[in-house]
Nucleic acid binder design. Sequence first.
DNA 1: TGGCGACTTGCCCTTGACGTCAACGTGAGG
DNA 2: CCTCACGTTGACGTCAAGGGCAAGTCGCCA
Lengths: 139, 139
Amino acid sequence: MQDMRIGELAARAHVSTRALRYYEEQGILHSERTPSGQRVYGEAAVERVRLIQHLFSAGLASRTIALILPCVDTGHAPPEMLSSLHTERDRITSVIADLEQARQRLDQVIELTEHPDPEHCAIVRDAAGRTTAIAGAAA
Amino acid sequence: MQDMRIGELAARAHVSTRALRYYEEQGILHSERTPSGQRVYGEAAVERVRLIQHLFSAGLASRTIALILPCVDTGHAPPEMLSSLHTERDRITSVIADLEQARQRLDQVIELTEHPDPEHCAIVRDAAGRTTAIAGAAA
DNA sequence: TGGCGACTTGCCCTTGACGTCAACGTGAGG
DNA sequence: CCTCACGTTGACGTCAAGGGCAAGTCGCCA
């Protein structure tokens, strides 16, 4: 397992070096150091950074990530952390529900626009003027 | 349909009045005004604000929301907006996938901590090993 | 009419996740 | 030895999503 320094990791995980230092600052990414202080990472760090990115993009805060990552690593949690884990799990579940609802609405719009149902043509055409008016005003 | 002012809407939708004014500023929530300038909302605004909140909590930016809300309202989109809608939809889909993966990891941890059954332990351990290998096996 | 709470706009403050710039150390090649 | 890309920490900038305060206005009730 050949090690890499921060620049290579950043390139391979498609994040900035700044982000990597920030993750370390937040305690969610660890590094070895050369005697001179340069950060050194193993292969595994690439996937780890991607995981971190996914969690961020899913709306989790760095503190939350810092909380759950060690548990995911070890595969278990100290019992006193269970309630936080349940809370986080429930939050994730409700966010998923929100997202699915939002996606469903989007799908409806897309479907109707791509395959305008003849029955609703009149309605759609009527609404078209208003929408572009709104879109134009908003833009 | 009796109307309400900003304070009541805020209370009923469980957001701050500041947030409501911010939504209006961002063009994602509209209001009528009294001759003196006070904001007036109809019943429907309550559900609209909740929808907005859901979209926010799902990680969508106000600009994105401003983009898709009119389409959701009218049930269709101007064709030139279709690609943006597809992009947003795909983003949402991948975020959902990330979240489900994260939740699954959490579930493993919770399960293992709540029921440290030796037999399951091995199985879950193995599964956890593989997933964290994907994520980057620490240690 | 006076009072009082809810409302208005305007402005700066805060937090999180970085970007960016400064000033300096590191290390492999010519 | 010099260079030059890459690394380091520290400090400040930015952008979104509001929070909070100020100073003035509205509307309703005694």
